[in-house]
């Protein structure tokens, strides 16, 4: 299947401080480009170059499909991207759902939790699980996605499964108040490479690293999952989102 008259843009956030923030977005764009499905493939960022506006201006295609490199239908996806990628006289823009809204996301989170449990030979009913997400008073979407994910994961039989947040209640920092005893698996609901998943959340949990594995914090044993977003994990999801939109 080929869409030579369509350009694909992976629209991420990026960072002026963290070199890793856009790495996987850019690498994934290169991987998808090599497959020759779309006429052009670009990455674009809110905080890095190219900006969303510059990415559009450089395209030869008249039809653009934008896949949000975000996990939730939150502020950026529903407000910023919808505003930045509007149709012009020259270019028709279509924005898909963010990659985090794909149904496969649940299985990626389940696999992370299963790997952590297997490392200790534990069953789900021996641990609690937290989905650590951003949340923002600007938009409810971020919270909703994390809460839904936690509810889905709860069906696997954990002692409890809840969503916790950086900017909303319940706060990540209060994890030991919420889960008063026993080991806790924490799955970061952040895309890989960003500061939140690699620095902020581990710090709030009181653990010494951000790699997938078990850590001893002052407040107890924490199993930390790897943030989502490696190119090999998201490439197919992105192509399916883009192809579905381009086909309409």
């Amino acid at each position: 299947m080929q869409f030579k008259d369509v350009a694909l843009i992976l629209a991420g956030h990026g960072s002026t401080k963290n070199a890793e923030s856009s790495r996987f977005t850019r690498e994934t764009a290169h991987r998808i480009r090599e497959r020759g499905i779309f006429g052009e493939v670009r990455s674009a960022f809110w905080k890095e170059q190219p900006s969303y506006a510059d990415a559009i201006q450089g395209l030869g295609a008249k039809k653009v499909v934008v896949v949000p490199w975000f996990l939730a239908n939150g502020y950026f996806t529903t407000k910023i991207l919808q505003r930045e990628f509007v149709d012009t006289l020259d270019v028709e823009c279509r924005v898909t759902a963010p990659i985090g809204m794909r149904s496969e996301i649940l299985s990626h989170f389940q696999k992370r939790a299963e790997r952590l449990l297997a490392a200790k030979s534990w069953k789900p009913n021996q641990v609690s699980l937290l989905v650590a997400s951003h949340g923002t008073p600007l938009h409810a979407g971020s919270r909703v996605a994390a809460v839904d994910l936690a509810e889905q994961l709860a069906k696997d039989g954990y002692r409890t499964a809840r969503a916790v947040f950086l900017e909303e209640d319940p706060k990540i920092a209060d994890w030991r108040v919420l889960i008063q005893e026993g080991p806790v698996v924490v799955l970061p609901h952040f895309l890989a490479g960003g500061l939140h998943g690699s620095e902020d959340v581990p710090e709030l949990l009181g653990i010494s690293g951000a790699g997938e594995g078990w850590y001893e914090s002052e407040k107890g044993e924490v199993g930390y999952g790897e943030p989502l977003g490696r190119p090999e994990e998201v490439e197919e999801m992105i192509i399916e989102l883009a192809v579905a939109k381009a086909s309409k």
Partner: peptide, 26 residues
Amino acid sequence: REGMEVIYPGLWGNAEAWKHGKLKFQ
């Protein structure tokens, strides 16, 4: 072109649009 896109993202396209009098700026 892809190499230039990595080195100076978005800027080749801007330059072409400028030379054709089509560049939009804020």
